[in-house]
Design a protein around this nucleic acid. Structure first.
Lengths: 226, 226
DNA sequence: AATGAAATTTAGCCTAGTCTAAAAATTTGT
DNA sequence: ACAAATTTTTAGACTAGGCTAAATTTCATT
C-alpha cells in the first residue's frame, strides 16, 4: 500500500478527523455520529459537519446528510497510515528515549503528522519492525495490515490463570500513572490467586510480588494467557 | 535557557519567519529587509510585513516601518531553540536512520516544529550531545550557546595543506548529491596537491584517492586544518 | 535638490478552520 | 402517530496567513 493519493495533500486537521472517525468506527457497527466526533475532538458539531463535507469531496468518507459518516477504503488506508506512524513513534519514545507509558501520547500526536515515507520506514527498521506499541495496540505494517492480539481482560479470566500483561484498555494518563506507581508494566507476569466475590477485586501475584487490585483496574488490563 | 515564554504559543509559520530572520541577520550587519525575507520564504513582501507586525507585537523582533527588522533577545533565543532542534534531528536522521546528507533537510524542516522539551533533551542524550550537524554547522546547547568551528574553505588554503572535511557552505541538494556521487563525505581526510593557476581548480588526495575538483567546489567545502 | 526606481506598506480580498445562533431533520416517548 | 427532545445542518461571522493592486517611503543618480 502506498498512501500516496491524498497522503501528502492532507492537512493536520483533516488527518485528525480521519483518525478519530477510524477509532469511533471500530467501536460501534453503525456509522459515526457528528456529535461523537465533536466530543472526542473537543470541537463543535457544526465544525465537524463542515469538515466532513470537505473529506467527502476528497473521497475519504461516505457521507449522507443526517446519516452519519464512515471511511471509504481510501480513508481507511489513510487512517492506518497515521496510526502506524503514531504507534511507531510511541515505541521509539519508550525504547530509545526512555519515555514512560503515560508520556508518549502527546508527543506522538505531533510526530504522527510528519510526512516522509523514508522516515517512517527507516524508523520501523531501527525499532526492528515492532508488532505492538507500548500500550499493547497493534502496529499496521506498510501495507496497512495488522493482527489483533489474542488477549483477555484480567477481570474475565478464572482463578489460577497465568499470563503476561500486554496492554491496557483505558490509556488515560491517570490510569497509566497509577500502573507505574504500583509497579505494573508491560511484559510483567501475572497470576490470579483469588477473586473476591463481594466486589470483584483480585489478589494477584505479579513478578513474585503479591498485591490486591480492584475490579476496575482488572477490567482495564489485558493479559496474554499462557 | 528555557525557551518557555512564547515557545509553546508560536505557530509553525511564526517559527519559520524567526528562523529566516536569524539566518539573514547573521550574514549582513544591517537590519534584515522585507524583500530578503520574502525571497527566502517564497512568499510576498506584503505577507512578510503582516507577519513582522505580529512578531513585533509578541516582542520577538524590533521593527520600525521601512527600516527593516532584527531579532530581540527573546527572538534570538527562540531562533536558537528551533535551530537546535533542526540540527539535532539532522544528526538523528543520518546517524540512526542512515539518511544521506542531502535527504535530511526537508524532513528536519518538519521535525524542528515538534514541541516537547523532554523529547529534544532525550534526543540530545541519545545522540551523545553532538556539537555539529551533518553539514558541519554547530548545534546550540540547551542554553543557546554554541561554538563556530575553526574551519577554512578548501579554496583558501595553500598547497600541501592537510585537513578533514567538516562541512559545506552551499547545502543545496544539488551540491550535496554531487559530493555523494564523487565519494566526498564528512570526516574525509583531504590533502591539497596542486592548485591550477589558470582556473583555480585543485588536485587533491582524498582518502588515498586522487581527484581534481573545480574552484567552485573548493570554495564550498570547509576543512579543519591539521 | 529633484526625480525616477526600488522597496515597503496599506487596503481589500481569499481560504481553511473554527465559532454561535437558528433552522431542519431525525429519534423518542407516550 | 405525533409532539417533544435531540441531533445535525445551515447561515453568517471571525482569525491566521496568504494574495494582488495601489499608495507611500526611501534610495540612487543625476
Amino acid at each position: 500500500m502506498y498512501f500516496c493519493v491524498n497522503m501528502y495533500s492532507m492537512t493536520r486537521s483533516e488527518e485528525n478527523y480521519i483518525k478519530t472517525i477510524f477509532h469511533l468506527g471500530r467501536k460501534g457497527t453503525r456509522d459515526v455520529a457528528t456529535n461523537a466526533i465533536a466530543e472526542i475532538m473537543e470541537t463543535k458539531p457544526s465544525s465537524v459537519t463542515d469538515m466532513i463535507k470537505r473529506l467527502s469531496e476528497k473521497d475519504l468518507v461516505n457521507y449522507k446528510r443526517y446519516q452519519g459518516v464512515s471511511l471509504t477504503s481510501l480513508g481507511t488506508k489513510t487512517a492506518l497510515g497515521i496510526i502506524r506512524k503514531h504507534r511507531l513513534w510511541e515505541v521509539f519514545l519508550v525504547e530509545k528515549l526512555d519515555f514512560s507509558w503515560d508520556e508518549v501520547h502527546e508527543v506522538a500526536e505531533q510526530l504522527e503528522h510528519i510526512k516522509s515515507d523514508k522516515l517512517i520506514d527507516s524508523l520501523d527498521r531501527l525499532l526492528a519492525y515492532p508488532k505492538f506499541d507500548p500500550h499493547g495496540d497493534p502496529i499496521p505494517d506498510k501495507n496497512g495490515s495488522f493482527k489483533e492480539r489474542d488477549r483477555k481482560l484480567l477481570s474475565e479470566v478464572p482463578v489460577n490463570t497465568v499470563g503476561v500483561c500486554v496492554g491496557v484498555k483505558d490509556s488515560s494518563t491517570t490510569f497509566l500513572k497509577f500502573l507505574d506507581k504500583n509497579g505494573i508494566a508491560l511484559g510483567n507476569r501475572i497470576k490470579v490467586l483469588e477473586i473476591e466475590e463481594f466486589d470483584g477485586s483480585l489478589n494477584i501475584e505479579i513478578e513474585d510480588r503479591k498485591m490486591q487490585i480492584s475490579n476496575v483496574i482488572a477490567s482495564n488490563l489485558y493479559i496474554n494467557v499462557e
